[in-house]
Amino acid sequence: MAQVSAGVDPARSAVFAPLSDIGRAEIVERRLQDAITSGVLHDGERLPSESQLGRRFGVAVVTAREALEALRDAGLIETRRGRDGGSFVTFDSDTARRFTDERIRALSRVELRDASMHYSAIAGMAAELAADRAGEDDVQGLRELEEQEDLATAGGARRAVARFQLEVAALSQSPRLVREELRLQAEIGTLIWLGLREEDNRIRSRAARQAELDAIGAADTEAARAIAVRRIAGGVEWLLDEKSRLEAAAETDTASRA
């Protein structure tokens, strides 16, 4: 039986749905943690100050401070005092890997697939509209951008994908799709594109982006959408395989200790 029919008016429920202002420090912490462990923020990079972070995330300074403290305790940043002081990223690949592995294991498959569907809906529609609305100059500009990307590292490849997603969303001419793309990138982008730490995936990812650009350039709306959706599905399938592998490894570990 559908939930909707059980005497619940979904429109009314949405009006009074709680606003998410709980756990804001955790959200800030998670964002920065993802950026550090995926290499988007570099080792040694100085983070914005507490008050700058507060402004950028739209949270109170104490909330930003709380998030930084948690990252410091986790060994992902260090704080130096004095004139050239501040919080600096300390990227230690073992720690980063451990964090990422834990994050993948903590996510349920259901959650991951749901996030993937949501992202596909947004990115797929953006690609479809972009194919209808992009001019020749726009497509040429994107091709040039692609050529400049540094795909030698996971962080570089991740930035290339993030930029591509954003530019395609902008070509849809829809501010709402752009905002949603940015929000989803911040929320789940790091996970979905985690497979880019393997070189094979970086090469495949680039080829798929080029195919999507070709479709956009040819005003082939259906192909553009299909490729965008397939790129996201590819990322999620890799993540699910990685999750299974990590879980199997953990089980073997426990079994051998018993």
Binding site: A169, A170, S172, Q173, S174, V178, R179, L182
Partner: peptide, 12 residues
């Protein structure tokens, strides 16, 4: 433009 100004206001 018109363009989505995502550097600035995210508006059209």
């Amino acid at each position: 433009g018109p363009y989505v100004d995502y550097l600035c206001t995210d508006d059209y």
